[in-house]
Amino acid sequence: MTATTENPETAAAGSRGSQPPVPPGAITITLRIRRFNPEVDEEPTWQSFEVPALPSDRVLNLLHYVKWYLDGSLTFRRSCAHGICGSDAMRINGVNRLACKVLVKDLLSGGGKATTITMEPIKGLPVHKDLLVDMEPFFEAFRAVKPYLMTTGHEPTRERIQSAADRARFDDTTKCILCACCTTSCPVYWTEGSYFGPAAIVNAHRFIFDSRDEGAEERLDILNDVDGVWRCRTTFNCTDACPRGIQVTKAIQEVKRALLFKRV
């Protein structure tokens, strides 16, 4: 397979060199990647790569193929590659997904037509390079809701126990892996970066509704502000984007309800 790069001489820079044998049953996929090199480019540009792929491959495998064999300068984050660490959130065919959780067979165009997969960095955060974004504004909002256990009084000598029913109230929001898929799918966050965003509210929800925590009022105060939950327009992009299946919009509505009725 060959890369359709503008500059073929530098295309293989940093890559592993000779390409591996194409497995039987592989099809050729066109990867259209939104690329940006801050040292050279003024604006991001699109670049296409032809990559052999099995239907059972993950989209992350295609990115690996490009980086290892076609163009070593392609930059993206990934760590565990199994949907746990939340590093490889990106816009795949226009929706926020983890590249390691999307299978090629789910993106194939029907009727034997050639398949093109577009990959962009997640929106609303500054792009450092290619698919790599600056996550700091995202984590700043996360830290601002105080996502840790807050208690008063003496530390108990035993573990802090809780009934199964109390635990179930915030079970959904404990699943967050901070991949930023939800926050960067939110149209309000795209234009107004000071909005806390769905992920921060989900992580506030995880402690607000925890019977062992005593900081609910403080967190509700933080989220009652102009950049808090009232900015949510219930577009449900976040719920659709969450790779962990968290009912994000529902969690935001529960925080609104707690504020409205002054009851957790």
């Binding site: 933080i222 009652n224 102009v226 808090g228």
Partner: peptide, 8 residues
Amino acid sequence: ARRSNFEL
């Protein structure tokens, strides 16, 4: 936070 209920 401004502790204002205006948005609410």
